[in-house]
Design a protein around this nucleic acid. Structure first.
Lengths: 228, 228
DNA sequence: ATTGACGCACTTGTATGTCAGTGATACAAT
DNA sequence: ATTGTATCACTGACATACAAGTGCGTCAAT
């Protein structure tokens, strides 16, 4: 498990959650790994209380399983959960984009304009980690503009399921297409063109698709056997 | 605050959550009410730990505000949150129904068939609380059939915001129309008629609309002043 | 070799203790 | 009257202590 420093004024719970989330997404905590509140406590230098609260939160989205009196573990990858997180993202993102189209005349797109300009810059200057951050910011900004940040958080809470698949696939998305997508989406929304924007979002998100079958064949032990 | 018995084998945390949720929805815990882990502990006969965990969960959806070192309180009604919970439900329910239409040939509708029959029965025999339960079951069943139960839980977690508005409006929905809606929706889904089903769902959910302006005027002190 | 009782080491669930931050209040200084 | 300040009661954040359930290994009985 990969542990970094706690931020200033970060609560113990947030810190625990941040560490767990990162390590689950990167697979440093592999699917199926047994955890224990005690182990994690000493590993992170906290007491059981904030660890426990973080685990409870992660168990809400079924990325962690808490087995009473037996232990906790990183859930095996459940393809139906991966599907569901992708479904949730696609459905919500389309709805938000369409809403943004309707509200376009009243919205301030300056943050988004600046964002895509920076994306273009970091694309040309090859800073993929910065680019990924801007990618996330870009999408979240639409939720913010349409006053649907809570919806964003719910969607985000399920994203770990898909993130793990991405980590396994070592997918190197064609970043140049990503930035182009973003620019096109922003243009369509500004123009209030619902159908176009919605279609572009669907196309954009489809770029993140991974070859589930292949991955599943290669990492059988990371997957649940129940359902597909 | 209205307190009932703890179920057998119900964990302290689930019990606390159940009591809090019910009392928030019914407004027995009015918007703006200050809580404290200590008070709730003695009121429910539990220690602070499970209370705290329940409050943390409720704070995730912003129905409870935890103010560090100051106290917790039932959030005032925030119209933007009410909007968002309604938005979330409409968007997701439409997507689920459309998905169900696509999957219709492979689905087993027997549970839904039995459900609507019972609804008709309880409608004629005037048992509104039974009817409400069946109403919830009806909608959840579509999530279950399409393998999207996690999505249902996320949507449900936001529903308290809208539930409080309904409690304030003392809305007596025309139950006969509700049951008719359900029957029509089920028919459309079985026929795989996406557009029809989607439209019916939208119409159905619109029946639960409340007169926000009027309620807000009558219960000013229950509402936040920030944004509308 | 098989089976079943039992203890032990470990887990999470719950209870309680400790601490630092907050804001209301009383009161002194002006 | 106003303002600065010290105090104090209370809070949630976090740490620790205790309880109770689980399952595995041991080992005796057969």
């Amino acid at each position: 498990m990969n542990i970094t420093e706690r931020y200033a004024r970060e609560t113990a719970r947030d810190y625990a959650l941040r560490m767990l989330t990162r390590n689950i997404a990167s697979l440093a905590l592999a699917p199926g790994t047994m955890l224990s509140e005690n182990e994690l406590s000493s590993a992170l230098g906290l007491s059981r209380t904030p660890i426990r609260e973080a685990l409870i939160e992660l168990s809400k989205t079924r990325i962690v399983e808490i087995l009473p009196q037996r232990g906790s573990r990183i859930a095996l990858i459940d393809c139906s959960m991966v599907d569901e997180s992708r479904f949730l993202r696609l459905v919500l993102e389309k709805a938000i984009i369409e809403l943004a189209c309707e509200m376009a005349p009243t919205l301030d797109f300056s943050v988004l304009e600046a964002n895509v300009k920076l994306q273009r810059f970091y694309l040309e200057n090859q800073l993929p980690e910065k680019l990924m951050e801007l990618d996330n910011d870009f999408h979240r900004e639409f939720y913010r503009l349409t006053n649907r940040l809570q919806t964003y958080r719910l969607q985000e809470s399920m994203s770990l399921h898909f993130d793990r698949m991405r980590s396994l696939s070592q997918a190197t998305v064609k970043d140049n297409k990503i930035v182009g997508d973003h620019e096109a989406i922003l243009r369509a929304v500004r123009a209030g063109n619902k159908e176009e924007a919605s279609m572009l979002v669907a196309k954009h998100l489809s770029r993140y698709t991974v070859d589930e079958k292949a991955i599943r064949g290669q990492y059988t032990h990371y997957f649940t056997t129940k359902n597909g």
